[in-house]
């Protein structure tokens, strides 16, 4: 079956489909092996050319790739014995947020994340990873648990944004997000945020105000979606590609601004091409940062955290 592809990579995906076919033939008929080698070389060269230096817009596309590992995949791969918190104990269960407590390596951690579906059916329950106020209030509960058990608080972020809907407004979307930001900034345990895909505006920063922010290479983090920016600037969503350039929203941009602590490299062409590799890299990175944070006094951690968020963008005329 032909796999999903974006326009700029169609040729690669086509060749890879052919390679799979020829590989099958080669397993029965050794005379095809030369063709296998040739195709492999061709694909490698093409991948370097097409994927070697992605534009900001191409990275946005990777971050939204339907086959990209979702937050739940990261949690399944990295956290053992996960005990979920289902709802906010106030109004509803928001499936766009996965939250609970589990083990990272041998260490107990509290975890929250925005979770997208992998297909339309899943996305109906996950709301395409766009949380309602209940989702953010569920995160507040888990932050409280982290403080009570004195365990680090980890977040995984992949959301186009908080849900802009009627119920969400009626129940105080902005109020819930602000409470999350404030609570996380004052949380009395070490915190780590990992932006794995889309870091969409208020919906992302609600659970991204951590001691250290990590980003996957093709993730983005932005004040507004490229489409939203294009529609404001030029009344034309189709100019999202240009907007992605001016917004400076890639992991490497944010790292150069000193806002993102570490960029976790992805396999060529996006991490959906090798999920196990990205799980391994993310695991190593989380371990390193938690190890470094856990030896510090909590007073020092809060002081450093507060200094960091206090000085952001302090360049004036």
């Amino acid at each position: 079956m032909r796999r999903f592809s974006y326009d700029f990579e169609t040729k690669i995906i086509d060749l890879e489909e052919k390679l799979r076919k020829v590989n099958q033939l080669a397993s029965q008929n050794p005379s095809f092996e030369r063709e296998v080698k040739e195709l492999e070389r061709k694909i490698e060269n093409l991948k370097k050319k097409v994927y070697g230096n992605p534009t900001p817009w191409q990275r946005v596309l990777f971050s939204r790739h339907p086959e990209r590992p979702k937050v739940r995949d990261f949690i399944n791969a990295l956290i053992n014995g996960f005990i979920p918190v289902q709802g906010d104990r106030l109004f509803a269960a928001d499936n766009a947020i996965v939250a609970g407590i589990g083990f990272f390596g041998g260490r107990e951690v509290a975890v929250c994340g925005t979770d997208k579906g992998k297909n339309t059916r899943e996305n109906l329950t996950k709301n395409f990873g766009m949380a309602h106020p209940e989702g953010y209030r569920k995160c507040l509960l888990v932050m409280e648990l982290a403080e009570r058990f004195k365990i680090p608080f980890l977040t995984f972020i992949d959301t186009p944004g908080a849900y802009p809907g009627i119920g969400a407004e009626e129940r105080g979307q902005a109020w819930a997000i602000a409470r999350c930001i404030e609570k996380m900034l004052w949380l009395q345990v070490p915190t780590l945020a990992i932006i794995t895909g889309e870091g969409g505006s208020g919906g992302a920063i609600a659970i991204a105000c951590a001691d250290r922010i990590l980003m996957l290479e093709n993730a983005y983090y932005s004040v507004i979606s490229p489409e939203g920016c294009a529609s404001i600037l030029w009344h034309d969503e189709k100019r999202a590609e240009e907007a992605a350039e001016v917004l400076k929203l890639t992991a490497s941009d944010l790292h150069s601004f000193g806002l993102v602590y570490e960029v976790i490299p992805e396999p060529l062409g996006g991490c959906h091409r090798d999920p196990n590799k990205i799980f391994k890299r993310v695991r190593e990175s989380i371990k390193k940062h938690l190890d470094e944070l856990m030896v510090k006094e909590i007073g020092t951690i809060l002081e450093e955290r507060h200094n960091f968020y206090r000085q952001i963008g302090n360049i004036f005329k």
């Binding site: 105000c209 983090y221 917004l247 400076k248």
Partner: peptide
Amino acid sequence: GIFSLMQMAK
């Protein structure tokens, strides 16, 4: 851009 978003945190 991101600097504005971060003012929400500040």
